[in-house]
Nucleic acid binder design. Structure first.
Lengths: 145, 145
DNA sequence: AGTGAGAATTAGAATTGTTCTAAAGTGATT
DNA sequence: AATCACTTTAGAACAATTCTAATTCTCACT
């Protein structure tokens, strides 16, 4: 299949380009993600790749996933590890994570924006809530956490 | 102060309305969130309320927070507890969490939507990424995870 | 005021997801 | 073949959260 050869090429290039080695473990973890296009957890990836490399360890799977995410080859869905945070702001708002300070700011949403965003959902999808998270730098005097 | 009396009223009503008791612990946890409008973790809330009720336990803080979130009095920022998930879809897309099945679906984004959403950021905020998460029901033949 | 039932709290153990550490392996380069 | 950086492995450690069992509290009803 041409597609998987392509993505393998991309993987190899990205690794080379960062001075990282194209190890069997990295290739396999990447392949397993490309092959089954769902959203597996690290444990699930671990389970899937063990049949190919029985000696692979969970720590290696975590390492490989981290590498793939860092190289932009894969996306991680739980953007922010760490403890859940609670906010008393009940107005519809988005969150901005300042990556430098680790602080979180509330961003007010214009009226109707959430409804507008919901219109991108295909028929059959009924969203009870929408969450918008920005990440980046805020040239702002801190304050929030 | 009228505001905090107001929100206290709301708290009491919401609890009553669900047959829940307005305990000192629940009131205190709620108050502490209202008083300091940042995004504390459960541990931080625990630390803050201990001075008022030294006997309070961490489990109670978690319980109270869960209750407040369930009653819509407070919002939790790490929408989905549990393990991080990984997806190989590199096209800009949102995620839809099906609350019934626990599965996650990719939602394609129309061109320019992310840029458009970014325009709501006040000056000084520079977002390197935007994450959009829907939660709700999908009347869809599953498939994704 | 006393009692009983259900609700809530407490302390600590257990679980889960992730990261860390130390030792061993790999492979290109001298 | 010695070296050096990178990688993997196994298991311990850690952090966040949930669970459990015992106790305490609250409140409606006598």
């Amino acid at each position: 299949m041409a597609t998987s050869d392509n993505s393998r090429q991309v993987l190899l290039e990205r690794l080379q380009g960062s001075g990282l080695r194209p190890t069997p473990q990295r290739e396999l973890v990447f392949q397993s993600l490309m092959a089954q296009r769902d959203h597996p957890t690290a444990e699930e990836v671990f389970a899937r790749v063990k049949s190919q490399i029985p000696s692979i360890s969970l720590a290696t799977v975590y390492n490989c996933l981290e590498t793939l995410v860092a190289r932009g080859l894969v996306r991680s869905v739980n953007f922010e590890r760490g403890p859940t945070r609670y906010c008393p702001n009940l107005h519809p708002h988005a969150h901005f994570h300042d990556e430098e300070t680790g602080s979180t700011h509330d961003i007010d949403l214009p009226d109707g924006l959430l409804d507008q965003v919901k219109t991108i959902l295909p028929p059959g999808y009924d969203a009870s809530s929408v969450e918008i998270i920005f990440r980046g730098k805020a040239a702002q005097p801190a304050g929030d956490n």
